[in-house]
Structure formats: structure tokens, C-alpha cells
Design a binder for these strands. Structure first.
Length: 865
RNA sequence: GCCUCUGUGGCGGAAUUGGUAGACGCGACGGAUUCAAAAUCCGUUUCUGGCAACAGAGUGCCGGUUCGAGUCCGGCCAGGGGCACCA
């Protein structure tokens, strides 16, 4: 009598049993002698309170890898924790009056309950939240060590300032240049802030990222571009004329009236196309002039009403003001150029000053056209004529031959760069230099819910580290969020402390650390809360899994932190690379729905009737919209809890792994998840049918061999699919395998042994995907112990290989026939067989065979004329 | 604006290094089972023409390299991710 698989009873049963047996508890290195280690880590979640399908997909993928590694005999570390500091907790505090701490810990509890239902093979004994004082205390100790090592410093830097709320805004809190709550236009404001000296490692971060072979190519490219190493030149432009109001500066300080302007360029070959200099609005010379020129001051102010994000700066219209200063060309003292200030020059890159060579740079060209500055083309594109080539509204930025450039004429771009630098050096007007786009990492945040920076400001001693025995510097609990600004700063007592050095009254630092700091070393904490030996054993992470949105920042910061920790003796990891393997998975998307009145509707509120959509409650027509990333605002989310309650966790896991390649987006569909549920029953029926039969050894008759070959081929292909992160292919193979085993149910009794063998292998290959169902299947056919603890099936290579191969025969590149030949058959025999094929013969009749290409085991192409 | 990735049937996608395009799944259609339905099982399903055998076209668009291109090269178009205070 056939039975149905009931996930609602089976899933909790198995999870309890696993828990009881402590199946996923990490073994210490000494308890796993001889076993290779595998550290499998998924990016830990922000505890928003609810699990979403993106989480399910992320953690299902990591779990496939972890379970597979375990079955292959690895000693596995697969931990989980919470990235628990951040703005949403403060927003909740402002909106609902809940304390960020209790909000966060409640969310963690709720999410963990959901997590546990997924049947992930996680070791929860290592769980922590980054807002636990033990964790952020350790982070503060680390901060102080970096400070000792000179990797931490303070400098002035710009923030988005809301002048109404008197508070610092994150980029996402700036909407169309206005504060998200006050609606007031945002200003730039300079604050003294803490920085990590990530640029000290720029060269190493760049060099090694290219060698991370198990990272996606695109992430390596994005990181390399982000670091942005460039070879160029520093050029000093002597001042020709400056306004009289620029006063002589005191001894030892820059003299704006006479000091040459330093410019960085990667294109010294275009120096003869220069038509102006442009300085950043916050360049010292600009500022000095702004003090005397209202129009310049107004322009600087206008620039400071822009946000600090790069997008805004880049998209803004190119604008500037002539500063009334002029400089001499480094190659010709009689050539005088004007100096402007311009909004597209960034003070944070290079020297904050550029020379404009409009023909070879789009921004310079836009600027030159706007203010009617000269445009002299100096690079001749390949194939262009000097007499006719001209620049209109499009700059030519590519390589070519230099012209209009005196001693550089006729040189290639590359040679001209070299010659120009040589000449600059000879004249004492410049030098070659290497520049990075990467900037030091600003970590100060004027917020409450983050890790306090463990320093004290003393009027006599300056910046003093909090002594180690006073760590952690804990966040005070009694804070209010009734007004904007940093609650730590306005707390009545917290910041008032005595200086640890001189004992006089002093002030605690009230900035907290960027939450990216928390996630930059959590992988090391998981590897060992204390014991450094275990850290060395587990790291680097062998397989890291997470979203592509972290391709640059989180991953780069983590790579920096691993190096910094290594260099202060906190991590024994010579390479400084925390993640040996990286996989970036795609998002979970869903169709969106809008009611006639334009309201977003949830998938559970709509139904499809006769091909068109309608609201379930009212029957009103619904407009289906584009397929987008699941988000609360668009209401196109599906609650994992509801799916698990209806279909079980295995089906949810199966679905998110099945349809799309892991690195791409997957579209959640009701039909798809129903199909997954159907398949789970079908798979169960294979085992159910075998369960009461007597198990025998697999036979050698034809029917048995068909089954055995199918099983061994399938297992080998699933193994490979998992290794290569092609889980969707693994799923497809399991589908085919089940179909083969279903077919074998009508085979003679002699094949029962082969069916048992196949089922036993299948249960083990299924475990990484649908672990609960796999346990039930394993149990049904009398498997020993837990399938979750069973080794990966042994694959008989002989059974995975065929002795014949089917090859396509093409005539002039078009497929015309198929032939089956022995594997390894000689090319001339294959060719003869192809020519003898009747379908082929008719195509070559009356024509002469010019050439025959035989690709062994693949294809024969006959070229006729 | 800059960096980066993606584009294949009605839909999600498969296709080792350039070698039989459409595996597998969803949906649809047809059939079996059933008093009926659900569930299940079997079959068909890229498009166009044709009763069929078969022929032609076809991997976002345009062009190129090659005996052979989804795959490589050049140019476009569309969509996604990132751009340093969202995580």
C-alpha cells in the first residue's frame, strides 16, 4: 500500500533527532585527525525580524556545500550569527519608541525560530550577535591594537548634514538632495572623523585579488577597479598672476600667491591640449580666494549643498568659476592658462586639481564648451587625418598618434606619456607617480546603535585609549530617540569620564563604528572565540556565499581587516585573504501586482482567473507588473513561514535551488513550488515501493546494468554539479534519476538489487538538497543511522562510461545525420561511416568533397562545393 | 555619469575548451484511470509551411572571424548590481 510523505510530521522529527545526536556540532581539530577541514560560511543576516526568500536561497546554498563536504569526509565548520548593529533599529526606536537593543534581540529570536525550521546543518553553539558586548568589546580591543600600529587616525571629512534636524544623514537618507525626515536641503559639513588606513594595503589588496582563483571574475574586476591603481604624473604649474588680495602666508605655510599648483594626471601626453586648470571647490586656493570674492564663495556654497555621494557629483551639470589666477604651462613659460574652480573636481582624489585637456576628456570638453575655453585636439585616432580630424561635442579618449604637440608630435600615446614625464623631470616641473582611487575608510558614525569607539578626549593628554581592563565600553541603555541627533552625545552622564592618564575630567568619544567594521572580522570570531590555534586551523573560509551587492565594500573591508589583524598578531594568516572561495548568488524575485487604484497587492491577495488577474476579496481586476526583487515596498514578498507550513522546508529549499543558476535571480512562482512539492512525493514513492521488498546485491543482467549505469552516472554528475555550484543542474539530474528508477519498477525481479543500490545512492545525493525527506527515504529502505551522517556514495567509474558514442554529421555546417560509433574509433573509420550514411550521401551527391573535419567523439563536418 | 554583469521556446533555464541549440522543470494541449472529481500515470509541445515525409528560419540587434558561433571579436539596444554613511 503506497503511502504519502508528510513533511509536517517528518521534518520536526528529524530536526529533533539531529539535535539530539549533535550531528552538526563542530569537531575540534584534534577530534578529526587526518580529515581535511572545510569552513563554509554564508554572509550573516541583518536581524530585520522576518526571514525572506532571499535568506532561504542564500542559506540553502551554503547548506548544500556544507552537507556535501561533510559527506565527503571533511571536518566542517558551518556557523551562524547576526549582523545586529545598524540604522533600522534606531528607526524603529524613533517610530515606535522601542529600545534598539530589545527590538534587535526580539528580532533575532523570531528569525532564529524561522531559521531552525529550514533544517540547515548549522552549529548554533558558536552563535553571537555583533551587538553582544562580548563581541563589540573584542572589536574595541582590536581597534586599539590597530591604533597602536598606526592603522587608525583622525582627519576632517565631509558628511551629509541636515540643517533642520541638526543631524548627520546616511546617503540613503538623502532623497533628491533633501533630508528624508525634515525635507530640508542637505549640506556638506566637515567633521573630524576616524579613519582606517586601508590605503596602506592598496598594492597588496590589488595584487592578491587577481590571484583569488575561486572568486567570480566580475568581483575581482570590480575590486581592482575600485582600488584603481593608476600610473601618472604630478605636475607643478607656476603661478603667473594672482589677485593682490591673496596675502603672503606666514613662514612655513603654503603661500597661495606664489606656490605652484600641483596637479595629478594620467595623461601627460595631452599636456599641449591643456586649456585651463580646475580646482576642487574645497581646494585650499579656492577657499583662500572665496574669502575675498563673493561670487566664488557663492559657488563653493552651492557645491556644498550637493550630497556627498559620487553619483550626485558625477550627474550634476559641469559648472565652475574663473578664479582670476593664471599659471604658466610647464613646457612653455609664455603660455598662460586660467585657473578655475569646478564642481566635478574631487578633492579626495589625486591633488584636488586637474588640468583640463578638453579634446581628450568628456568632462573637460563639456566644461570647455560651456565656458568657451579653447579645444585643441592632440591625439589622432588610428586612421584619422590630422588635416580633417576635429573634436565637436565628443572627446576622443582612446590611444592614437600625438600631434599639435611640439616635441611629442608623432609619438604614440604611450611613448608620449614617457617622454612628457622625462621632460617634466628634466625641467623640475613634475615627476612620475602611482595613484590609487581607493580612499581611507571613514568609520565614524554619529549614531547610537553601533560599537562605541573606545577612546577618551582629554584637554591636556589629547586622544587617550580606554585601558584594556575597562573594555568593553558599553552602550548606555537609558537613551532617548525623541529628537534627532546622536543620543550618546546628549546623554547626561555617559560621555563624562576622567582621563585614564591624568585623571582630569575628560570626554568620551561619542561616535560609533561603521557597521561594516562588525562584519569585517566576524568570520575570525566564528573560527574561535578565544583559541588562536583554532583560528589558524579554520581560516581562510573555504567557501563564502552571499549577495553580489557586497562585491566591493564588505569584501574589501574584510580583506583589509584580515591583513590588519595579521599584522597586529591577531590572526595567523600569511596571505591576509579571509575568503579562499567566494560565490555570489542572485536574488529572489516575484511578479508585482497593482490594483485598479494603483495600490500594491500581495501575491496572496490575488488570483488568476481565466488568464487574467483579480483581487480575491473583491474580484476587481489586477494589473500584473514587472518581476522585481522581493521587497516590502512593492509587497511582492512570499513569507517563508507560510510556504514551510504548506509544503515543508525541503520543498522551499528545493524550489530556490532548482530553477535558476545560483548566481542569477530566481523568480518565485506558485506553480513552481507546487511542482516541487509534487516531485517530493514522486521521489518518496520510489523508496516507498522498495521499502517492503527484500534487499539483494545488484545483479549483472541487462536490466540491472541499465539501472546501475543510470545511478552511477547521476551520482557522479550531481557530485560535479555541487562542486561547481550548478545546483540547478544537480536538481535536473535528480529528476532524471527518479524517472529512471520509476521506470525500473516495471523491470523484472532481478533488477531489485540494482534498484536498492540506486535508491541508497539517491538518498545520499539528495541529502544536501532535501535533508528531511532524504532521512525518511533512507529510513524506509533500511539505511543505517542518519543519512545526514552517511558518506557520499562510492561511484564505480566503469559504470559511468559507455563504449559507444553518438556523433552528429554535418554537411557544410548543417546537421544532416547521426552515427553511432565505438568510443576511440579511428578518424578514417568514422569518416567512412559518415559518408556512407544515406542522409549524408544525398547531400553530397554530385558535389565534390573538399574537406572533412572529424572531432573525435563529437562531430563530423563534410565540406562540399 | 563611472565600474560591472546579464539577454536562448508561452515561462525559469540546459548546452565540457568554438562542435547535434532547447536537457530538466513550469505551463498548455491530448490520452489513461475514475460514476465524477482530486491525486497519479503516459504522450505532444521553438517558430513558419506541409496531412505527412520533409524543408526553411532561429540564442536581444547589426557586422566580423571560422569547416563550424548561444559560446570568440567590434559596434549598438534593453535590464540588473555597485558607486565609499543601507546592509
Amino acid at each position: 500500500m503506497a503511502t504519502r510523505y508528510d513533511p509536517q510530521t517528518a521534518e520536526p522529527k528529524w530536526r529533533e533527532a539531529w539535535d539530539e545526536a549533535q550531528l552538526f556540532r563542530t569537531k575540534s581539530p584534534k577530534d578529526a585527525p587526518g580529515a581535511p577541514k572545510a569552513y563554509v560560511l554564508e554572509m550573516f543576516p541583518y536581524p530585520s525580524g522576518r526571514l525572506h526568500m532571499g535568506h532561504v536561497r542564500n542559506y540553502a546554498m551554503g547548506d548544500v556545500v556544507a552537507r556535501h563536504k561533510r559527506a565527503k569526509g571533511f571536518n566542517v565548520l558551518h556557523p551562524m550569527g547576526w549582523d545586529a548593529f545598524g540604522m533600522p533599529a534606531e528607526n524603529a526606536a524613533m517610530e515606535r519608541g522601542v529600545h534598539p537593543g530589545s527590538w534587535t534581540y526580539q528580532n533575532i529570536a523570531a528569525m532564529k525560530a524561522q531559521f531552525l525550521k529550514l533544517g540547515l546543518s548549522l552549529d548554533w553553539s558558536r552563535e553571537f550577535a555583533t551587538c553582544d558586548p562580548e563581541y563589540y568589546g573584542a572589536q574595541q580591543a582590536l581597534f586599539l591594537k590597530l591604533m597602536d600600529k598606526g592603522l587608525v587616525y583622525r582627519k576632517a571629512s565631509k558628511v551629509n548634514w541636515d540643517p533642520v534636524d541638526n543631524t548627520v544623514l546616511a546617503n540613503e537618507q538623502v532623497i533628491d538632495g533633501k533630508g528624508w525626515r525634515s525635507g530640508a536641503p542637505v549640506e556638506q559639513r566637515e567633521l573630524t572623523q576616524w579613519f582606517f588606513r586601508i590605503t596602506q594595503y592598496a598594492e597588496d589588496l590589488l595584487e592578491r585579488v587577481q590571484k583569488l582563483e575561486r572568486w567570480p571574475e566580475k568581483v575581482r574586476i570590480m575590486q581592482a577597479n575600485w582600488i584603481g591603481r593608476s600610473q601618472g604624473a604630478l605636475i607643478w604649474w607656476p603661478i603667473a598672476e594672482a589677485p593682490d588680495f591673496l596675502p603672503p602666508s606666514p613662514e612655513g605655510e603654503p603661500n597661495h600667491a606664489t606656490d605652484p599648483i600641483e596637479v595629478y594626471t594620467t595623461r601627460p601626453d595631452t599636456l599641449f591640449g591643456a586649456s585651463f586648470l580646475a580646482l576642487a571647490p574645497d581646494h585650499p586656493l579656492t577657499k583662500a580666494i572665496a574669502g575675498h570674492r563673493p561670487d566664488v564663495a557663492a559657488f563653493v556654497k552651492e557645491c556644498s549643498t550637493m550630497g556627498t555621494s559620487e553619483v550626485e557629483i558625477e550627474k550634476a551639470e559641469k559648472k565652475g568659476v574663473d578664479l582670476g589666477v593664471s599659471v604658466r604651462h610647464p613646457f612653455d613659460p609664455d603660455w598662460i592658462l586660467p585657473v578655475w574652480t569646478a564642481n566635478f573636481v574631487l578633492s579626495s582624489y589625486g591633488t584636488g586639481a586637474i588640468f583640463g585637456s578638453p579634446a581628450g576628456d568628456q568632462r573637460d570638453l563639456d566644461f570647455a564648451r560651456k565656458y568657451d575655453l579653447p579645444v585643441t585636439p592632440v591625439v589622432l585616432p588610428p586612421g584619422a587625418e590630422a588635416a580633417t580630424h576635429s573634436i565637436d561635442d565628443e572627446a576622443y579618449t582612446g590611444p592614437g598618434q600625438i600631434y599639435n604637440s611640439r616635441f611629442l608630435d608623432g609619438l604614440s600615446t604611450q611613448d608620449a606619456i614617457t617622454s612628457a614625464i622625462e621632460e617634466l623631470v628634466k625641467l623640475g616641473r613634475g615627476k612620475a607617480t602611482t595613484q590609487y582611487r581607493l580612499r581611507d575608510w571613514g568609520v565614524s558614525r554619529q549614531r547610537y546603535w553601533g560599537c562605541p569607539i573606545p577612546v577618551i578626549h582629554c584637554e591636556s593628554c589629547g586622544v587617550v585609549a580606554v585601558p584594556e581592563d575597562q573594555l568593553p565600553v558599553q552602550l548606555p541603555d537609558d537613551v532617548t530617540f525623541d529628537k534627532p541627533g546622536n543620543p550618546l552625545d546628549r546623554h547626561p552622564t555617559w560621555k563624562h569620564v576622567d582621563c585614564p592618564k591624568c585623571g582630569k575630567p575628560a570626554r568620551r568619544e561619542t561616535d560609533t563604528l561603521d557597521t561594516f567594521v562588525d562584519s569585517s572580522w566576524y568570520y575570525a570570531r566564528f573560527a574561535s572565540p578565544e583559541d588562536m590555534g583554532e583560528r589558524a586551523y579554520w581560516l581562510p573560509v573555504d567557501q563564502y556565499v552571499g549577495g553580489i551587492e557586497h562585491a566591493v565594500l564588505h569584501l574589501l573591508y574584510s580583506r583589509f581587516f584580515a591583513r590588519a589583524m595579521r599584522d597586529v598578531g591577531e590572526l595567523d594568516l600569511p596571505s591576509g585573504e579571509p575568503f579562499a572561495g567566494l560565490f555570489t548568488q542572485g536574488m529572489v524575485t516575484h511578479e508585482t501586482y497593482k490594483s485598479a487604484s494603483g495600490q500594491w497587492l500581495q501575491p496572496s491577495e490575488v488570483e488568476q482567473v481565466d488568464g487574467s488577474w483579480a483581487e480575491i476579496s473583491t474580484g476587481a481586476p489586477v494589473k500584473p507588473g514587472p518581476i522585481e526583487k522581493m521587497s516590502k515596498s512593492k509587497k511582492n514578498t512570499v513569507d517563508p513561514d507560510a510556504i514551510i507550513a504548506q509544503f515543508g522546508a525541503d520543498v522551499a529549499r528545493w524550489f530556490v535551488l532548482s530553477d535558476s543558476p545560483p548566481e542569477r535571480d530566481v523568480e518565485w512562482t506558485q506553480a513552481g513550488v507546487e511542482g516541487a512539492a509534487r516531485f517530493a512525493q514522486r521521489l518518496w514513492s520510489v523508496f516507498d515501493a522498495l521499502g517492503d521488498l527484500p534487499e539483494t546485491a545488484p545483479g549483472h543482467d541487462a536490466e540491472s546494468m541499465v539501472v546501475r549505469k543510470a545511478s552511477h552516472k547521476a551520482a557522479a554528475s550531481i557530485d560535479k554539479a555541487i562542486e561547481e555550484f550548478r545546483f540547478n543542474s544537480g536538481v535536473a539530474t535528480i529528476h532524471e534519476w527518479v524517472t529512471a528508477l520509476k521506470k525500473a519498477e516495471s523491470a523484472p525481479e532481478s533488477a531489485i538489487g540494482a534498484r536498492f543500490e540506486g535508491a541508497s545512492m539517491l538518498a545520499r545525493c539528495l541529502t544536501p538538497f532535501m535533508p528531511h525527506l532524504a532521512e525518511s527515504c533512507w529510513e524506509r529502505i533500511g539505511g543505517e543511522g542518519f543519512v545526514s551522517a552517511a558518506p557520499w556514495p562510492v561511484i564505480d567509474k566503469v559504470l559511468t562510461e559507455d563504449d559507444t558514442v553518438t556523433m552528429a554529421v554535418q554537411v557544410n555546417g548543417k546537421r544532416r545525420a547521426e552515427i553511432t560509433v565505438l568510443k576511440g574509433e579511428a578518424n578514417d573509420v568514422v569518416e567512412a561511416a559518415a559518408l556512407a550514411e544515406p542522409d549524408v550521401a544525398s547531400y553530397i551527391a554530385g558535389k565534390s568533397v573538399k574537406k572533412t573535419i572529424v572531432v573525435p567523439g563529437r562531430i563530423v563536418n563534410i565540406v562540399v562545393a
